[in-house]
Design a protein around this nucleic acid. Structure first.
Lengths: 194, 194
DNA sequence: ACGGTAAGCGGAACCGGTTCCGGTTGCAAG
DNA sequence: CTTGCAACCGGAACCGGTTCCGCTTACCGT
């Protein structure tokens, strides 16, 4: 769990000891509560259970979505890091499809993550890190297969990411796995070379 | 404006006179307030300005999104009714692209409509009417051009609608027209015959 | 050790959506 | 015209997210 504060610390002066302690407890507690109660969990409950006031929570995580994003950041990172391996061991299109399915499954599994993603992908602000990570993973998959197949050259990873975000929003619900699959097929046909 | 209550009345016994009057005033006021203040407008303000309590508003429109949907229902209908004309006067793919662009422009213009659409497309409930209308319009565009070109036979209008909904959610913001265009291109390549 | 202060803290207050319920009223049957 | 009651009304209360601000404290320089 030490990877997380590393991110933040790289940009600002180190947090005061008590602040760091609170941030850790908040992430820990938020993860537990989100796992237990899903996206319905209230920010106030998380703060109380972590033993801090809501003010403290909001100073560190400016919105509920950003807290959710922080909680799942490492898992997103793992998802992204799996892309190169997929690209290396599967035919390009299969690698892409497999990764996309994992992406959607992840969004569907982590309750509330789809909305967090919408914020991350939509905001113009500094939330670039996760967005960049995802775009990079997709770019890797798009350009793998070198001079032979993979994707059309004019497809931008950013756009594919946005499309996947849209699919999550529409199909990350309970019984929507099949819809997600069909939408991914649609997207793939637009992405791969004819 | 008399087309709206016609919809509802077709299904339930006629409303009591005062109830009908309130519903009309609510729709009227909501349209005005939404136009003036955008999606940020509060339900309470709309109720107050219409001269009714929030309870009355909620009895008729069970959520803010459904109120928004009702306000714009006729315009959605007009959008859908334009599809046959497009299909008749343009090459199939152009007709489809043009209609999709209008759809996204509409969602971007009517503040809050994208979220309303998410509810309408996502809920399993009775909100079928608008959904069915949209799906029908898309179906028309997909199957036009008869035995010659248009869309792949295995693409379902419902799925295209969901994809468009996703695009709205991601690209209906302020300066996102170009993103929307690119995502529509992507979608179209997945939809039309190779 | 001490003091000044920037950083941090917590929770009351605010705001918008939604629910609930005691009181009211349009309407039709008698 | 009266009366019964289902339908309706309004707004207080609730709930969850977010903001604000007066008080506290960890840290650094002396």
């Amino acid at each position: 769990m030490t990877g997380i504060e590393g991110d933040a610390a790289r940009h600002r002066r180190p947090l005061r000891a008590d602040a760091q302690r609170n941030e850790d407890r908040l992430l820990e507690t938020a993860a537990a509560v989100l796992a237990r109660e899903g996206a319905g969990a209230s920010v106030k409950d998380i703060a109380r259970e972590a033993g801090v006031g809501v003010g403290t929570l909001y100073r560190r995580f400016p919105s509920k979505e950003l807290l959710v994003e922080a909680v799942y950041r490492q898992e997103v990172r793992r998802l992204c890091e799996a892309a190169p391996h997929l690209a290396a061991t599967l035919p390009p299109v299969d690698a892409l499809r497999t990764w996309m399915e994992r992406f959607i499954d992840f969004m569907a599994a982590k309750s509330g993550m789809a909305d967090a993603l919408r914020v991350v992908l939509t905001d113009d602000g500094e939330r670039l890190q996760t967005r960049a990570l995802l775009a990079e993973a997709i770019d890797h998959l798009l350009s793998s297969g070198e001079g032979e197949s993979a994707a059309r050259p004019d497809v931008a990873a950013q756009d594919v990411l946005m499309a996947l975000g849209g699919i999550s929003l529409m199909a990350a619900g309970e019984n929507r796995r099949d819809l997600a699959t069909r939408l991914i097929d649609l997207l793939l046909r637009g992405v791969v070379r004819s």
